[in-house]
């Protein structure tokens, strides 16, 4: 049994202009000790689907239907009180913006010690000691000094380490990392990613890694879910996607073509996916990707494909999943 199993999740938002279907029938699983990478453009529903797990949606958002099973326990029907026990304890989150994700008026010690006090009932003094341990774990130099400091005295990389320390405080089973390295410099980014890999090995935490950066996914993930317009369009082991796949969704193909690789010949131009993500209130009828897809046929514009298992472990939401055949026809 998977540690986390999301099935047919529909998360909608009530807005002035109508219901926005931000997450539309999404399914994925996170295995114990493994990393699931969720890739997609902004607005593809990757963050919303993750926030649905913890029920941390904005007030106008709601889970319309679907099931989220954590360790065999259904999360969508839990009460508020039961949800408090899960958040930060069993499942915790690292957010994208280390600059704004820490409370500016509280010290590092106060912020990192909160999970210990809330979930483990430690006293202030006991928690403060654990905070020092945590700061050491995330390789912060001079933890005794940093613990008394305020967020504005720390650099972006340090703040993200504090965030990670806070998230890992109660040894969660799952860590949701929502673009944890996007706002950082490339060198700091590499350090943070290495830190997360190391900590995963030490503590055996499962990671749900949300990003739009395929390079990062390739480095971090065991499995990959590619999202587009609130749907999972492809689900496969990272090895399959980043190897020489037989099957692939045209969107994944486009994403891979748009990043340079070491073995890309220098005379090959990088290809961008034409067009833009459709407006969430004006989604196309058939396949959501059809308007931007160079292989799209008449069928794609009327009929919506299902996520089909093309080979064990790989699912593709396309009528023409076979790369070679598609290229020949197109």
């Amino acid at each position: 049994m998977s540690l986390l199993e999301v099935r047919d999740l529909n998360t909608f938002f009530r807005t002035k202009h109508g219901i926005v279907k931000a997450v539309n029938g999404v399914s994925y699983t996170v295995e114990a000790g493994k990393t699931l990478g969720i890739v997609g453009e902004s607005g593809s529903g990757k963050t919303v689907s993750a926030m649905s797990i913890l029920q941390l949606l904005d007030t106008n958002g709601f889970i319309e239907s679907g099931s989220i099973k954590f360790d065999g326990r259904e999360l969508t029907t839990l009460t508020r009180r039961e949800m408090y026990e899960i958040r930060g304890n069993d499942i915790s989150v690292i957010f994208q913006e280390p600059m704004t994700s820490l409370n500016p008026v509280f010290t590092v010690e106060r912020q990192v010690s909160e999970p210990f006090m809330v979930h483990q009932g430690l006293s202030k003094r006991e928690a403060a000691l654990r905070v020092l341990d945590m700061l050491r774990d995330v390789r912060i130099p001079n933890p005794e000094v940093v613990t008394k400091q305020y967020p504005h005295q720390l650099s972006g990389g340090m703040r993200q380490r504090v965030m990670i320390a806070m998230a890992l405080a109660c040894r969660p089973r799952i860590l949701i990392a929502d673009e944890p390295s996007t706002a950082l410099d490339v060198t700091i980014q590499a350090q943070i990613l290495k830190l997360m890999n190391d900590l995963q090995e030490e503590k055996g935490t499962s990671i749900m890694f949300i990003t739009h950066d395929l390079g990062v996914v390739c480095q971090m993930a065991d499995d990959v879910a590619v999202m587009y317009c609130g749907q999972v369009v492809e689900m496969a082991p990272a090895r399959t996607i980043f190897g020489k796949p037989q099957f692939s969704h045209p969107y994944t193909e486009g994403l891979l073509f748009s990043i340079p690789r070491l073995d890309t010949p220098s005379d090959v131009r990088l290809e961008a996916i034409p067009g833009a993500v459709p407006h969430p209130l004006k989604l196309p009828d058939g396949c959501k990707f059809a308007p931007r897809c160079k292989y799209a046929t008449e069928r794609c514009k009327v009929e919506e494909p299902e996520l089909v298992e093309v080979q064990p472990g790989q699912g593709v939401r396309c009528f023409y999943p076979d790369l070679k055949e598609r290229r020949k026809d197109g």
Partner: peptide
């Protein structure tokens, strides 16, 4: 509406 409030909620703090 700030990010650190979301962080605080994600920690499992009571409302």
């Amino acid at each position: 509406g700030t990010d650190y409030i979301r962080t605080a909620r994600a920690k499992g703090l009571r409302e």
